[in-house]
Amino acid sequence: MDEKSSEKAARAGGSNQPPLRILLAKPGLDGHDRGLKVIIQALIDAGMEVIYTGMRIPSQAVILAAEQEDADAVGVSNHSGAFRELFREVAAGLQAAEAAGRRRRILFCGGIIPPGDIPTLKSWGYRGVFPPGTSLEAIIDFLKAEAAALEKEGRP
């Protein structure tokens, strides 16, 4: 375990902290994965560890994967308009896990999201909502800032 941690630290560029583990998922039937694939590469280049579930994954499986992979953050993407249902399920599942004593995970999302839906998503627990045109830098900065805030709370 110690060995593995130091290996991670080395990959993160010598910092003492292990790299952030980011789980990315596309729940539902949507096949638009361009944005997510670009983000995967950008996060890896920024020294983070990325676990990608692939497409057509049920919401429950996203929650399970977050658990099993011990992800610091969970990001979901949708371009089919089904996000109102799917993102609600993912957020509710993670909240239930947290209520049952699991650690808090940073939740964020992106895709085709009408501006009017952003407040709703925030109210569900999505700390970051990233519509088209978001810069990669903005997403990386968001994850770092959120992780630092979690750290202050006392990262398990």
């Binding site: 539902g28 039937l29 949507d30 089919s80 089904a82 109102r84 249902e85």
Partner: peptide, 22 residues
């Protein structure tokens, strides 16, 4: 819609949330 494109009827659980969307 995506369920039709992939071959699920609208009442299939796999179609939930996607019926009539795209």
């Amino acid at each position: 819609d995506l369920p039709t494109q992939i071959g699920y009827d609208s009442d299939d659980p796999a179609a939930a949330g996607e019926v009539g969307k795209v």
